[in-house]
């Protein structure tokens, strides 16, 4: 008897990340023929992104794909993924992933299956060229940059004024120069046509993917051993294949925006290290301050620079 799982995504179907999740669904359905099937029913038009994990916990749906940092308040361990520098496969090997599974289970009451789409970074994009200082770093002090909660702390640490603006207002804001730039993942920069105004990108990128595939605990426990094995194997495989896909997409996007005239400002040497330290420390410090007993272990498993 084939089991069907109903799944939702935090993003609308046309966006890149939802298509990535569709790949996972296709992989499971291919491998699980006659045993297990995933029915990808929809996204934010059914459940607001922040409330989706509640729907999984309650069993209204069986599976969900979306950012773990939406639940940072309940599960400070999500910052391990924000601040991670190892690959998802390494974290599976060294036990980091198992700690995360425990955190998802204890704090959110859901079963963590996969850490998807790792390998992409966030970047700071600006309208105008930021001033270079003597030591090779950039003078970002006082710049107004559109920000999101996960990198607000990092921005403030560099003297940036984080501006909180809802997505639909950003296009007009950039067009009129209401703020000086925005933080955004590299591969979605063309989604909202922001790249028309954001002509400068600061490299290196920082942070990592926080995208999780989770399942309702009771549903997971009720699955046959065969179904569980298929899901576990496909999850590990999907972590690798989604990362490979991300790398290809980043490469293509990077080439395209450069061809279209975006200037990439690359920090080198000490300035680069200082920049990355500030970024990653902001995530790890946030987790440390939360007082979670998993801090030391997670930092050891997920962070090595």
């Amino acid at each position: 008897e084939e089991v069907t799982l109903r799944a939702i995504s935090a993003f609308p179907k046309p966006l890149y990340f939802s298509q990535s999740f569709q790949n996972f669904v296709d992989m499971v359905n291919e491998r699980g023929k006659g045993v297990i099937r995933i029915d990808y029913i929809g996204g934010p038009e059914m459940f607001p992104p922040n409330q989706q994990v509640d729907a999984v916990r309650r069993g209204v749906v069986d599976m969900q794909y979306g950012p773990a940092t939406y639940y940072l308040g309940k599960m400070p361990e999500a910052d391990a993924w924000v601040g991670m520098t190892v690959s998802a496969a390494e974290a599976r090997e060294n036990g980091g992933f198992a700690i995360m599974q425990k955190a998802f289970s204890e704090k959110l009451n859901v079963e963590l299956l996969a850490h998807a789409d790792t390998g992409f970074n966030f970047h700071i994009y600006t309208l105008k060229e930021p001033k270079k200082l003597e030591d090779g770093s950039l003078d970002l002090d006082g710049l107004k940059i559109r920000s999101q909660p996960i990198y607000k702390g990092f921005f403030e640490g560099m003297g940036i004024i984080p501006v909180s603006v809802p997505v639909p207002d950003v296009y007009t804001g950039l067009e009129r120069g209401t703020f000086d730039g925005s933080g955004w993942p590299i591969l979605a920069i063309k989604d909202l046509s922001w790249d028309k105004f954001l002509r400068f990108r600061i490299d290196p990128g920082f942070f990592n993917s926080d995208l999780a595939v989770v399942m309702n605990t009771a549903k997971w426990e009720g699955l046959s051993e065969e179904a569980k094995t298929i899901l576990t194997e496909v999850s590990a495989e999907y972590e690798k294949s989604s990362t490979a896909a991300i790398e290809a997409t980043i490469e293509a996007t990077d080439k395209q925006v450069r061809d279209e005239g975006m200037t990439v400002i690359t920090l080198e040497g000490a300035a680069r290290e200082k920049f990355l330290d500030a970024a990653y420390d902001s995530a790890w410090n946030r987790m440390k301050e939360s007082g979670t007993p998993n801090y030391e272990e997670l930092r050891k498993d997920y962070y090595s620079r």
Partner: peptide, 10 residues
């Protein structure tokens, strides 16, 4: 749960 809604402030 001690949950927190993370927006421009928590």
């Amino acid at each position: 749960f001690g949950s927190v809604d993370i927006r421009s402030i928590a």
